[in-house]
Design a protein around this nucleic acid. Structure first.
Lengths: 210, 210
DNA sequence: GTCCTAATAGTGGTTAACCACTATTGTGTA
DNA sequence: TACACAATAGTGGTTAACCACTATTAGGAC
């Protein structure tokens, strides 16, 4: 029986390379290739692949956001994330969320193949360069309240920081604007914010912390 | 007769995608694929391809270094450079050196193909997003529009950046809220801003510049 | 089964931001 | 003097953010 995969990356040429490499694995079938987080999420929910290979840095929902959202919904799909940057926070977040594969975009093709094989068996595989960048200084978290936010709330906070309005976010996530309004209220309450546009201000000024 | 090319990029997966795309061009033969600037230079000197497709950001010699070196030695090889970053300086350097093709790594595959076709004919081809990032880097470096603001407008902009609302600013300056509303409109117009809360976003993110 | 939480969606209301106008006053300057 | 511009203030309208509720559904925990 063939394993199934979906691939998400917003760089068409890189994605082409990725799909080409994965196509060379005989026991793997690529169900879909998409270019953003929202499409990735929808594809995973619709097709339930054995493994999802996601770029972290994508417009809208990041690869980690997608993992977080899917994994919080009891899914069998295993996750491999890719990133350009040797960022300790990305790595820690990925491990916390339950990502099995962690690969740098400049890793060798063989690393990618080993990673997919390993993850399909349910094992972890992280980039060989991992020790090198784990020694980088960790950004300290000044906002412990952020931990109290749910996965959905964090995603919405991120989209607010990207200057998206509530109606825009609602359209992106395919829910009612009222729901976003509701989430906003809850976020404001959890973070203890006050005043007009306080959430937007918070989101913009603390961008990078979440 | 087939045209010939060499490809240089230090990211194996991206390079794979690139080679795969170029292989689909029937009249193009890839003579070599390399992963750094030195190898790129030696390959070009040895094989004299019609076109060299080079990543700018490579270890050792950058793609632009390679172009510069080869072009100063009277070569017939045409150059296409690739970069991740929307950097005005890279672009200016490339044009100065005599690079014909300039493509962003997140451009579409069709852009890449059009670029190669164009460059092989001796014509220039630059990324479609070029105007966007040429104005973007300019905006990031300085805000010439800020000079057009009057003294009162600058004061109001500063107070907005301090998270004051229009009624608060009106109270502070002992004028009507309508007047502040009016100034806001004028500032928004002068700065060419658009969208909800765009002025607040601008004020916060460019705080320190005024 | 009960309790709690998250996510969803709705009603109804207030305020602020923004947009497009008009209009008056004062201050320069060609 | 006439023109341009800045600052002031107003009318009237739309949209978004926020606030306070209620309510349903689905999972987990006890």
């Amino acid at each position: 029986m063939k394993f199934t995969a979906i691939v998400a990356d917003d760089h068409p040429i890189f994605r082409k390379g990725l799909v080409e490499i994965l196509s060379e694995m005989k026991d793997l079938e690529i169900l879909a290739e998409v270019s953003n987080g929202i499409d990735a999420y929808q594809s995973i929910i619709a097709k339930r692949p054995d493994v999802a290979i996601l770029d972290i840095e994508m417009p809208g929902l990041s690869g980690l956001d997608v993992c977080n959202k899917v994994l919080s919904e009891k899914s069998e799909t295993k996750f491999i994330v890719l990133t350009m940057h040797r960022d300790k926070n990305f790595f820690n977040d990925a491990m916390k969320i339950g990502v099995l594969g962690y690969i740098l975009k400049d890793n060798a093709i063989t690393d990618m193949l080993l990673c997919v094989e390993s993850v399909l068996k349910g094992n972890k595989y992280v980039t060989p360069e991992i020790e090198e960048f784990l020694t980088l200084t960790e950004k300290e978290n000044d906002f412990p309240q952020l931990e109290k936010l749910t996965a959905t709330e964090k995603i919405i906070l991120k989209l607010i920081a990207e200057s998206k309005t509530s109606p825009e976010i609602a359209a992106l996530l395919f829910v009612s604007p009222n729901t976003i309004d509701n989430h906003r209220s809850n976020i404001v309450k959890k973070l203890g914010l006050e005043g007009k546009n306080s959430l937007l201000k918070f989101a913009i000024t603390s961008k990078g912390l979440f």
